[in-house]
Design a protein around this nucleic acid. Sequence first.
DNA 1: TAAAAATACTCCATAGGTATTTTAT
DNA 2: ATAAAATACCTATGGAGTATTTTTA
Lengths: 305, 305
Amino acid sequence: MEFRQLKYFTVLAEELNYGRAAAKLHISQPPLTRQIQQMEEELGVQLFLRTPKGVELTAAGQLFLEDAVNVMALMQRATERTQLAGSGHLGRIDVGIFGSAMLNVIPRLLLTFRNLYPNVDMALHNMNKTQQIEALREKRLTIGFNRIIPESDDMVIERVLTERILVAVNRSHKFAYLREIPLPDIANQPLIVFPKIARPSFADDVIALCRAEGFHPNIVQEVEDVVTGVALVSSGFGISMVPESGANLKLPGVVYRPLKKTPSPSIDLSCVYRKNDQSPILQAFLDIIRAYRNTSFPIDTHSSS
Amino acid sequence: MEFRQLKYFTVLAEELNYGRAAAKLHISQPPLTRQIQQMEEELGVQLFLRTPKGVELTAAGQLFLEDAVNVMALMQRATERTQLAGSGHLGRIDVGIFGSAMLNVIPRLLLTFRNLYPNVDMALHNMNKTQQIEALREKRLTIGFNRIIPESDDMVIERVLTERILVAVNRSHKFAYLREIPLPDIANQPLIVFPKIARPSFADDVIALCRAEGFHPNIVQEVEDVVTGVALVSSGFGISMVPESGANLKLPGVVYRPLKKTPSPSIDLSCVYRKNDQSPILQAFLDIIRAYRNTSFPIDTHSSS
DNA sequence: TAAAAATACTCCATAGGTATTTTAT
DNA sequence: ATAAAATACCTATGGAGTATTTTTA
């Protein structure tokens, strides 16, 4: 049985006349006769009865008609769904994230993606970079976001955006009266760094930045994430350095100030995905990331001052 | 898209290796490659990815696989159902019946048919012969049962069985002491006949029987059906003549006696159906009727004496 | 570099076309 | 007698085969 025959059958069942059905199918009458004969032979069942004006369906033919219509509709639907999936508009994406990235950038990307691809299920998985790489290898993730990602043969790391590093200080701190903080002045300040796991991390970048300036920072506390770090700043425990997007975190008494240095010290947000992953959903997601990369993310660094 | 291609696709999706899949399909590898390429081109979607050991499904391919399996299963089911319908094992039969025939013969036929063709819906419609013919013409009936059915061009009338005519008398009646009732003795007896509508009917047969014997019966009552007639016999209103299968009707004080005549006066039970109806369900039903016709229906005519 | 997929080219089965005959009312 | 379906016969598209090349981890 062929789809062509199902089509012929349904048209003939509608027209109940070989000539008209053949015309509707843009073929001549004899091939239609033969195809229907072939179907009847293959099924071993008579589907039509001859009448003076044409043909009529047998009871078996009526039954087959219902099913034939269903089969064709199901096939049609299968085709459409597959084409959606093939263009990245249907399916699923698993995204690895970490705490502070969810403050600003990633939510915008995810929202944009969801609006453009509403039929793609999106699952977010909070995990650190080590877990992300492992999950990518096991195909539990499609893409991961992180700050500093070690190179590896089977993964591609792509910069999403570069942010300035800001200093988070308590409003009562003397730095709060400065427009920009000179980096060497950090030297004797009690510094809170994060995160403490999954090294190398943003904490290492901050330390390296100080060392490049010729001093060892006075680290009074290593904390889990940016939220905890800024919370300690809020309670007057010390100062901290945060990526610019962290400035979206408004906590009582915390203000953010840029560093006085040109070019401004900065930190990348990157994404990582399997090198051999050609899935259209990933490609669509990357397209959005790349479009965002060419856009500015204006962040008001003085919003809480 | 062709069913052949769906088959090829599902086998390849199972084997994930063109060579093995082709072997399983009893074709060589190149045509399989080409058919899959053709599918991918038609859908505009990549279904497989090459790997060192063979191929693997893309996300779109996995989606299509589910649907392809469903389409093939639905088509399989459609074929089977149609074949059942074509052999008379699936569908519907509408049977026209009348009161007294339901006493013995028709229930047996219906039961036999239902046992042999459990998936055929059977609907019974109580109607007289005029209504039956009309319903047959309008295809509301597949077959009708009746006693005396007028000939007509578009209908076939087929005898189902021939029954003796018995006399129903009250136990207190003098006839109850006879083994057989001489027909001429009926002449002066109060006779109840039925049915009174849809003439010619069994009543006319009874009257004709008497006239052939040289007398006019003393008809004291025309009633609707055999049940009413025998009820009147039970209450001593008179005697009646009934088809042998009517003797299954056991009413208080009613006994049945054969007529003393050779050959025994008899009445046919017939069926009627459309001459041009070739439906396998009707044919199957007729086969059962014909098998029954070649069987005896032993009826105990003395069961209530 | 080795196993597998893709390509080149040939053959033939079969869908479709035209002309004509058969069928059924 | 007539309209429609069935058959006869021809053409050509495309599916399958064999031999070979290309691809990829």
